[in-house]
């Protein structure tokens, strides 16, 4: 078991889709939401995904395919 903390960012057309619900059903990962905010322009959710590392990778790849941007929790770490 591993866990990964990520930020999902949703464009407006995805804000109403139950992406997180579906990722937890399609893949053997547990999703645990810690913080979120949504407005008419954009939404973001900070969550933890727990499961086998390869399964987490597949779950993230699927979410990205749906149009969600997935970033590490700490923001970009490559600085100027």
């Amino acid at each position: 078991m591993a866990s990964r903390r990520v930020r999902f960012t949703f464009e407006p057309e995805l804000v109403t889709e139950p992406v997180i619900y579906r990722v937890g059903h399609l893949y053997d990962v547990v999703t645990n939401i810690r913080m979120a905010d949504v407005d008419e322009r954009v939404g973001w959710v900070i969550l933890e995904l727990s499961g086998e590392p390869a399964e987490i990778d597949r779950a993230i790849a699927w979410a990205e395919q749906q149009g969600v941007r997935v970033d590490p929790l700490a923001g970009d770490v490559v600085e100027g």
Binding site: A74, G75, D76, E79, G80
Partner: peptide, 12 residues
Amino acid sequence: ARSLAIGNPADG
């Protein structure tokens, strides 16, 4: 401006 090129800003 590569020194400012952070697309996902931690403190945004």
